[in-house]
Simulated assay, not measured.
Amino acid sequence: MRKRAYNVDAVSEMLDLPTSSLYGMIRNKQFPAVKIGKHWRVLKKQLDEHIEKLEDEALW
């Protein structure tokens, strides 16, 4: 079964960002995430879309 969601630690490692920075981006609604119970999760589909958006902005 493929993963549909990642925890913040996994995403921060994938993007080479400090975990605290990613939590700040989530808190400021600059990065898509959902809270399940006490834990934040980043849905794979939203992560892929967010990365594509950033790539498009970088190519202007």
Rank of each mutant, 00 (worst) to 15 (best):
R4G: 00
L15F: 01
A33I: 03
E13S: 04
Y23W: 07
L15G: 05
L22G: 07
N28Y: 10
H50E: 15
D56M: 05
N28K: 05
A5R: 01
D9I: 11
A5D: 00
S20N: 15
N7F: 12
V11P: 00
K3E: 01
M1H: 02
E49Y: 11
I26H: 04
A58R: 15
D56P: 00
L59Y: 14
R2E: 15
E57C: 13
L15H: 07
I26T: 04
L43T: 11
G37R: 07
K44Q: 08
E49S: 07
D48M: 09
L22K: 04
P32Q: 08
D48L: 10
H50C: 12
D56R: 12
D16E: 11
H39S: 09
V42F: 05
F31M: 00
W60D: 14
K53R: 12
N28T: 12
Y23E: 04
L17C: 04
K38W: 08
R27S: 12
L43Q: 11
D9H: 13
L15E: 03
K29P: 06
K38A: 13
R27F: 08
I26E: 03
G37L: 02
V8E: 00
Y23H: 07
T19D: 01
L17R: 03
M1W: 05
D48A: 05
G24H: 12
S12C: 10
H50L: 15
M1K: 03
V34W: 04
R2C: 13
A10D: 11
S21A: 08
L15W: 00
R41W: 05
A10T: 11
V11E: 05
A33N: 06
S12G: 13
L59C: 12
D56V: 07
M1L: 03
Y6K: 00
V11G: 03
S12L: 09
D16C: 10
W60L: 15
I26C: 03
N28R: 04
L15V: 01
L43C: 04
K35E: 10
P32L: 06
R27T: 09
K53H: 07
V11D: 01
E49W: 09
M14H: 07
F31Y: 02
L59Q: 14
L15A: 06
Y23G: 05
F31T: 02
V34P: 04
F31H: 00
Q30N: 09
P32N: 08
E49N: 03
I51D: 15
R41L: 10
E55D: 15
L59G: 13
L43S: 03
R2T: 12
R4E: 01
K35Y: 11
S21R: 10
I51V: 15
R27A: 07
L17I: 05
Y6W: 03
Q46M: 14
R41Q: 09
H39C: 11
E13G: 05
K38D: 12
L47T: 08
L15M: 08
